[in-house]
Amino acid sequence: MKKLTNPGKICFIFMSKYVKKITSYIMGKGLENMGCVCGHGKESMEEYLAPLRSILNNYPKEERYLIPILQEAQEEYGYLPKDVLREIANYLELSVTQVYGVVTFYTQFHLQPRGKNVIKVCTGTACHVRGGAEVLQALEKELGITSGGTTEDLSFTLETVACIGACGLAPVIMINDDTHGRLTPDKIPAILDMYREQEDKAAAN
């Protein structure tokens, strides 16, 4: 066991069923209820939190920086895991409850993992009167999820926003930082394909 020095890898290996079986055979007991052997051991946790630490280092320990820190942390981790919140609370000397309260108040923050591509469908007034609802339906159908959901392969998260500020092009959606306007339901598949291709390309590299 000692040979496995990369704690991150330990986590990964122990998660696969196959390895679990072998280990449980070796150790003579079921590991099912123990989860990961390293149990997010100290080392792996340190590694996991390293990017957060470098974010925190840029900020003085003042409450006013809570929201910017949360924004940066979410950019780094894709969402706000419990351990990250705890660490931020420790750093700013706030209670975890206080941090949790702020996180749940703002729609921008997420406590669950999110898709690589985040789709925001505008349901604002201008888009509403020009058929935004049908665009949303088309996306839900194409992705097989409802608003607020994330696809199983973590490629897409679908959510609604009140107005993107591109009302002249209504109905509008935003995928990551790109705005797509003058939409009709039949344009949706091609747009999604564009992002799927980008992802495939990124994976190939």
Partner: peptide, 21 residues
């Protein structure tokens, strides 16, 4: 961080201070 009520001035200031808006 995405809350309509933060456009209200006292809520906006609470948000700048790092609290719930």
């Amino acid at each position: 961080a995405g809350a309509f009520v933060c456009g209200e001035e006292t809520a906006l200031m609470a948000s700048i201070e790092g609290r719930r808006g």
